[in-house]
Each structure stands twice: as structure tokens, then as C-alpha cells.
């Protein structure tokens, strides 16, 4: 079945958002009275090319990652969420909801009992498409995102707005995000080349095994770069990696962020400050080791802007000191 050209163009223009230029184009909704076209509006193609046929506005939505749950809440569509994953904790009510997925896998039976009109998921956590295939086989419409950069995250917010008929709210969230990000980016551009600090973001370390690092290819890495720093450790994996402490000592970062995320416990700056093996690193001697909120920088949702601003604050303090 071919999609009407109009819709295809609309979708394409929604996706064509330039983030680095700092301006997000907003597409004005075409009001269509024709019922046939009305039902067409409720058909989508997700960023992975999957066709999502809804027929009407979805009222029962299941979100499969904490970030998507947060986005639902941010665009004001929280009351439509009937189920989510086991790690979702914002809004706090998410903890009381039915949890259909955890790292152990999908609870298909629970999902069916929730009678969702739509499941929104992130392929990042389902790289083998196993859960996706499973849900498709249950004849439940699935909309998938697969964000690789901040622009993709903003697109995801927009898409959720479309899916829940909350485009106005979504646009407001995006506008706020972009505006604040532009402010950070502008201030960061003022930093002189030689003052750009090298930043290490440690996501887990307990002193018994090599630290886990968010490298430049992760979201946290792009936040560090926008916030005016450069990443001490580079790679192309896109994931957090375990990096030998020796390489970290050699990379000699100026700033160290320690993130406490709900899923990676027991790391605080005291762990690193109390570990003599880190003592030769610049960040330790200049007392630039900071606790940061892990959820703000590794959940691909609206709170990323908070993570960016937190990073930026620490980086600016360091530059000015």
C-alpha cells in the first residue's frame, strides 16, 4: 500500500530538523475534514521505516523505556500510559504501573492483557529486534525510535507529540530544550581553544574492577562537547565501555563526572577521591570531581537539557577558575 504523497512529505519535513543551526521548524497542522484522510493521519512511519497503522487516536499506550515514559509525561499525555518498563520512575506513578518489560525480557501476556492501542519502544534496548518481532506478532502497533544524537531525541519528542495529539506541548518542550541548548552552546563557544577541559564521565566504579566510561560516542559524550569540554576517552562503540585505569591516568582528564544512575549504583566522587591510584590525575589535584545525575545524561528524554546545563556549569567553573 502506498502512502499518500502529502503525508509522506509531511513526515519527511518533520524529520528534517536541523539542531546545530539551533532552529527547529514547526510544521503547521493541515486541518482536514475528510474522514478518510482523518484516519490516514493516524498512520505513521517510524524513523526505522516501520509502518504504524493506528486508524484512530491511540488511548492506551505502553512505553518501553524510562525516557519514553518521561517524554509521555513531558508532552502531557501521561494519562494515556497504561504500562511501561520496570525501570521507569518518572513520573513516580510509573512505578505503580504494570511493567511489561525488564532486562529479563518481555512479559507478552501482561502486554496483551493491557490491550494497548500502541507500544512505543527504543531499538537501542532491543538491538536484535527480538522484542519488536514478538510484539508485532501480537498484532499490536509498535512505533520505534532509535536515537543516535540529540536531534533524534528531539524528533522522538515531536513524534510522541504527534502520536498522542499533543503537538503543541511537544513543540513547547522542544523549543525550551533548543533555546536552553543554544544558550549553553553560545557560552561554550566563548571558551578559548586552549582552555577547553578534557572531561571524563565515569558511570560505574567500585575500586575492584576497571571503571566504566561514557565515551565521546555516547549521549553523555555529545553533551560534554556541547557544554564546552572534550572527551578524555574516545571510541565509536556508542556504549559505555570498561577502560583500564592506566589509560585513564594517561588521558589525564581535567574534570571527572561521576554519575549516579538508578541502574548503576554505588559510585560517588568519594570512591574516586579515596582511591590513591587516581591521585596523579589533574582533575583530582584541582578538585574537579563532581557527582552528576546519571539519568539526566543517559536517558534520551527531555531531562537531557538538565544534564547539559549541569555539565556546562561545572565546565565553566573550571574554565573560570
Amino acid at each position: 500500500m502506498k502512502k499518500p504523497l502529502l503525508l509522506l512529505m509531511a513526515m519527511a519535513s518533520i524529520l528534517a530538523i536541523s539542531v546545530l543551526s539551533g532552529c527547529i521548524e514547526t510544521e503547521s497542522e493541515t486541518v482536514v475534514e475528510d474522514e478518510k484522510i482523518e484516519s490516514m493521519i493516524w498512520n505513521f512511519t517510524d524513523p526505522l521505516g516501520g509502518k504504524v497503522v493506528l486508524g484512530s487516536e491511540p488511548e492506551r499506550i505502553v512505553t518501553m523505556t524510562p525516557a519514553l515514559t518521561e517524554i509521555m509525561n513531558a508532552v502531557g499525555a501521561w494519562e494515556k500510559v497504561v504500562g511501561c518498563d520496570s525501570s521507569s520512575d518518572l513520573p513516580p506513578e510509573a512505578k505503580e504501573l504494570e511493567h511489561v518489560v525488564s532486562w529479563q525480557g518481555l512479559d507478552a501476556e501482561k502486554l496483551v492483557l493491557l490491550k494497548p492501542d500502541l507500544v512505543i519502544m527504543d531499538r537501542t534496548l532491543d538491538i536484535t529486534d527480538m522484542i519488536y518481532t514478538e510484539i508485532k506478532e501480537l498484532d499490536i502497533p509498535v512505533y520505534r525510535i532509535y536515537p543516535k544524537n540529540i536531534s533524534d531525541v528531539l524528533n522522538a519528542i515531536r513524534a510522541v507529540g504527534e502520536l498522542t495529539n499533543e503537538t503543541v506541548n511537544a513543540t513547547a518542550v522542544i523549543d525550551d530544550f533548543v533555546e536552553r541548548m543554544n544558550a549553553v552552546s553560545q557560552a561554550a563557544n566563548e571558551i578559548a581553544e586552549e582552555d577547553i577541559p578534557s572531561v571524563l564521565h565515569v558511570t560505574y566504579y567500585d575500586g575492584t574492577a576497571d571503571p566504566w566510561i561514557a565515551t565521546d560516542s555516547t549521549f553523555s559524550g555529545s553533551l560534554i562537547i556541547i557544554a564546552g569540554g572534550e572527551c578524555a576517552i574516545s571510541d565509536s562503540s556508542g556504549y559505555g565501555v570498561q577502560m583500564s585505569l592506566e589509560s585513564i591516568i594517561e588521558s589525564n582528564p581535567d574534570i571527572i563526572f561521576c554519575s549516579q544512575s538508578s541502574s548503576w549504583p554505588t559510585l560517588t566522587r568519594e570512591t574516586i577521591l579515596g582511591d590513591a591510584r587516581w591521585s596523579d590525575i589533574n582533575a583530582i589535584s584541582s578538585d574537579s570531581v563532581f557527582d552528576v545525575a546519571g539519568d539526566w545524561c543517559d536517558r534520551t528524554g527531555p531531562r537531557m537539557i538538565l544534564g547539559l546545563e549541569e555539565f556546562h556549569g561545572h565546565i565553566m567553573d573550571h574554565v573560570e577558575a
Partner: peptide, 23 residues
């Protein structure tokens, strides 16, 4: 591990055996 550990990755890695970062 399956039922109670929130994030099994570091636990599983630790069990795999390693001498690194000995104090």
C-alpha cells in the same frame, strides 16, 4: 542474578574472574 539484581552487568563481569585493580 536473574530475579534480584537491578543491573547484572558488573556482577556478571566480576564473577568472570579478574586480578585487575588489586589493592
Amino acid at each position: 542474578v536473574y530475579l534480584s539484581v537491578e543491573n547484572p552487568t558488573p556482577v556478571i563481569f566480576s564473577l568472570m574472574g579478574s586480578c585487575s585493580l588489586t589493592k
